[in-house]
């Protein structure tokens, strides 16, 4: 789905300091990964404060043991983006559970050297997603719950 660049500029008008860079990256990455889209929502920080931030929300295709899975993720962009890394989460649906590990905590927060060593302009969303796809292909961050019931997960739009 093509992202309307004007709509995106408008979304980012609230406080994003490097809007042009951010618009360009999001346009680029959503062209490559069509199941991700920009959404404005309230992000809750560790101290309880909230701020309206842009997130890239949706799924990325991950190949694991020969099958492709659409892993649900949410990447929050701070208003200092791209000079700070996005805050990244895996977003399990009701039929999934988080598999904690080296790269994933119990809240679904994603930890990667790529994020830790983030430096604009060498680091960007496209590179990050490529790294995620490789890492998740080795260690999936979510698994399906062991149940025979089939239900479509509630997926937030």
């Amino acid at each position: 789905m093509a992202i309307n660049e004007n709509a995106l500029r408008k979304m980012l008008s609230k406080g994003y300091k490097y809007r042009d860079l951010t618009v360009r990256e999001i346009t680029n990455v959503t062209t490559q990964y069509k199941d991700l889209r920009p959404v404005m929502d309230n992000y809750v920080f560790n101290d309880g404060s909230t701020k309206e931030l842009l997130s890239l929300t949706g799924t990325v295709p991950v190949t694991y043991r020969g099958n492709i899975y659409n892993i649900p993720i949410c990447l929050w962009l701070l208003d200092s983006y791209p000079y700070n890394p996005p805050i990244c989460f895996v977003k399990p649906t009701s039929t999934m559970m988080i598999k904690t590990g080296k790269h994933i905590d119990a809240n679904g927060k994603i930890y990667l050297p790529y994020l830790h060593e983030w430096k604009h302009p060498q680091s960007d969303l496209f590179g990050l997603i490529q790294v995620m796809i490789v890492v998740f292909g080795e260690e999936p961050p979510v698994f399906s719950r062991p149940t025979t019931q089939t239900q479509y997960p509630a997926f937030q739009t």
Binding site: D35, N70, I71, P140, S144, P146
Partner: peptide, 14 residues
């Protein structure tokens, strides 16, 4: 403005 793939995950190991 929906579309988007249905999220999926590998089956749990047994």
């Amino acid at each position: 403005l929906n579309g988007g793939a249905v999220p999926s995950a590998p089956p749990t190991y047994t």
